[in-house]
Design a protein around this nucleic acid. Sequence first.
DNA 1: GATGAATGAGTCTTCATTCAT
DNA 2: GATGAATGAAGACTCATTCAT
Lengths: 199, 199, 199, 199
Amino acid sequence: MLKKNRREEILTAAITVFSQKGYHDTSISDLIEKAGIARGTFYLYFENKRQIFDSILNNLLLEIDHCIKTIEIGAEQPNPLDQLRANLTRIFTLFVENPELSKILLRHATGLDEESDQKITEFYSNSAYKIEEALRLGIRMNLVRECDPRITSYCILGSIREVIEHITLSRRDISEIDAIVEEVLGFGLYGLMNPKLLS
Amino acid sequence: MLKKNRREEILTAAITVFSQKGYHDTSISDLIEKAGIARGTFYLYFENKRQIFDSILNNLLLEIDHCIKTIEIGAEQPNPLDQLRANLTRIFTLFVENPELSKILLRHATGLDEESDQKITEFYSNSAYKIEEALRLGIRMNLVRECDPRITSYCILGSIREVIEHITLSRRDISEIDAIVEEVLGFGLYGLMNPKLLS
Amino acid sequence: MLKKNRREEILTAAITVFSQKGYHDTSISDLIEKAGIARGTFYLYFENKRQIFDSILNNLLLEIDHCIKTIEIGAEQPNPLDQLRANLTRIFTLFVENPELSKILLRHATGLDEESDQKITEFYSNSAYKIEEALRLGIRMNLVRECDPRITSYCILGSIREVIEHITLSRRDISEIDAIVEEVLGFGLYGLMNPKLLS
Amino acid sequence: MLKKNRREEILTAAITVFSQKGYHDTSISDLIEKAGIARGTFYLYFENKRQIFDSILNNLLLEIDHCIKTIEIGAEQPNPLDQLRANLTRIFTLFVENPELSKILLRHATGLDEESDQKITEFYSNSAYKIEEALRLGIRMNLVRECDPRITSYCILGSIREVIEHITLSRRDISEIDAIVEEVLGFGLYGLMNPKLLS
DNA sequence: GATGAATGAGTCTTCATTCAT
DNA sequence: GATGAATGAAGACTCATTCAT
């Protein structure tokens, strides 16, 4: 068997097991049983249990990163709103298609140890920071209401996280994504308040 | 020593240790060392490691519940917005005053086992459901914009969760809570969009 | 409460518990719960768990000893067979009336530790030795068939032990004792063989 | 090392240790030290301390069973008395050659817990029952004196048990077995009474 | 590369005993 | 005498990792 494939197989098996049992309740025995390999073989491809989990998690964080394109302003660029919409659609699609990854990221990747928590926290901080920068730009361009961009960025990030968790837990179908994206956009752009009350 | 006090002492010590090291990396030795008691003493007050963690978590969920008052509509009631504001203030205050609890709830309570995850998920589902009901009422009363109350409730819940995590991680002071509440309220009520663009 | 009574109460409770759960599965908690006393009180009357068990066992061995009268030969003495019969009757009666003691002696007193095993072994050795001496006398007096008195004594001892265990386990009534004694005597005196085959 | 051999080695070591220290005073440390293996290795071959003990005990009960052949009556069969003699010889030989097993069965297997006691009791009950059936047959065939076969069967069983315990404790040699068998047979068949007194 | 038997550090939990009140 | 909270030594069991084949 090609080295690359064997490794991928083990990773795939591990994603399934980790997502179901979490990091601590998953034993090496679980992993090799699912992957159909011998105990020693596991250690040919991964240094230890922690490393394979990190590997899965890093892959996932990369994939998420790929889903998010910085919003570009310019004549030749699509409408900023459409760019935002496309980002949301890509992220939600990623998780609806891989609900196991959602469990790993949102449930099991947390609280493993200081180092891992730091990595996750940093990832969210970075994400929030990107949102914050976009908000500052939007404010400067008079597209966005005056607000504290820091706090607001966390509101946006939290909305997205929670909706991801909800749609994977409630096993939403990919066909529902567009409507969900619009709903999230609607909340983020217009808030709750009935606009008739505003005028 | 009074039985009640001893138990409280152990709980307090456990909150500190669990919040720093997480559930799995905390050993009974850590707990009794922090509490300054003998190994056997621990088991006089708690059945096992899991039970003391659950105990902490259940207490916390109860406390959160106490922070949230259902919004009442009526002539003698305060303005609904003020009731909402008060709810947010109470919750943020709880966590700013007990940042350890935030770590336990948001980091370490997750991914312990199926049963525990279920409890947490249920807590959030319930919370989301209460928000959803409030949204439906608001829509009927024409206070709230037409929207999908289910998805929107998760946006709101997520905003709050993420802001809690942010303000505890960034060690925000209690004096900043009012401003933060206003910011979260602003986002939730009006969204991002510059209102001048709406007219 | 009088010191003597308190001690007796604890002993009585302990006999019940030990006989049901055995030595190792009986905890001090079991003993004090059954006796209705506090933990510390137990140690006012007994040095430790082992000592109360030994105490019960020693009492029992003494009681057994009291049941057995050396068979005396003489004009004024009852028929030796009747003396033997009386010994058996007293022993069987003791255990039928106190089936708990039978469990303690035959089940739970064994295998506790080297010292205790030694004591039990010695008790049986002594018992066997007394039987052996009686057999030697019987042989000299031509009452008893020529045989190896050592081995035979263990046969007799074993018969009695096993019958005790059987009659306590099968909850025989005291009214059946006479018949059982005759049966054991019959076996011991005449063996199995149909006497008609002997002539 | 072959899996079978390793298991056997551990069993052999465990028999020695259990027979010397008994079940409760034997720790896993004792077992692995004697077997010369690591702690984890023990648990590769046995589920827990209790299981290895049960394993030893069940093997032994099986071996005892194999020693005992039901006495067959028929023209082509050996003399029933010789069949009986052969049974006794096999059993005594088993224990004289493995005095450790005698200690385990007669001392340490008893009083472990309800379940184990039940198993042992049942084994003895079954054994007694087989003897009882043989006695009934003997009585019908006029080979055996009229008697209560139940009680008498326990006398016989007890004689054998006690002699086994005696000959293993007194470290009797295998060369003495024949004489001991004759002595036990003599007691069982003819009893104590000097036959001259009977005529 | 692949295997799986062997390893042993690490942890939870129990429970007999003590002693201050 | 009586109490029962506190103690801590002891022991069973797990499981990630190694390494000889």
